[in-house]
Computed example of a mutant assay.
Amino acid sequence: MGASLRTRFDAGMRAQLAPNPYGYGSVPIGTDEDRREATVSGVVIRYYVSRGVATVTVVRVVFL
């Protein structure tokens, strides 16, 4: 991931997904509400949300 895209992606994660990992157009993967997919700054990510500790763990990043 180039520096410019990384900067936009990091800003998108902080401003849009981190405050509400269940919002921002994200969708659950399967029946598990904590396993999600979203597009942030043009980058598709799959991630897990840990409710008890307010942690988002990105497990897959797809960018072109």
Rank of each mutant, 00 (worst) to 15 (best):
M1N: 08
A3R: 10
R6W: 06
R6L: 11
R6C: 09
R8N: 13
F9H: 04
F9E: 03
D10K: 07
D10N: 14
A11Y: 01
G12P: 06
G12F: 01
M13W: 02
R14N: 11
A15N: 11
A15K: 14
Q16S: 12
A18C: 09
P19A: 12
P19F: 14
N20L: 08
Y22E: 07
G23H: 12
Y24P: 08
Y24V: 04
S26H: 06
S26G: 00
S26K: 04
V27M: 13
V27P: 07
P28H: 01
P28V: 05
T31G: 12
D32W: 01
E33H: 14
E33M: 09
E33I: 09
D34W: 11
R35A: 10
R36I: 07
E37M: 05
E37W: 01
T39S: 01
T39D: 12
T39F: 03
V40F: 01
S41L: 02
S41N: 12
G42P: 05
V43M: 07
V44W: 06
I45F: 01
R46I: 05
R46P: 00
Y47E: 04
Y47Q: 08
V53T: 15
V53M: 15
V53E: 13
V53G: 04
V53H: 14
A54D: 14
T57G: 06
T57E: 10
V59M: 09
R60G: 12
F63H: 10
F63V: 03
L64T: 11
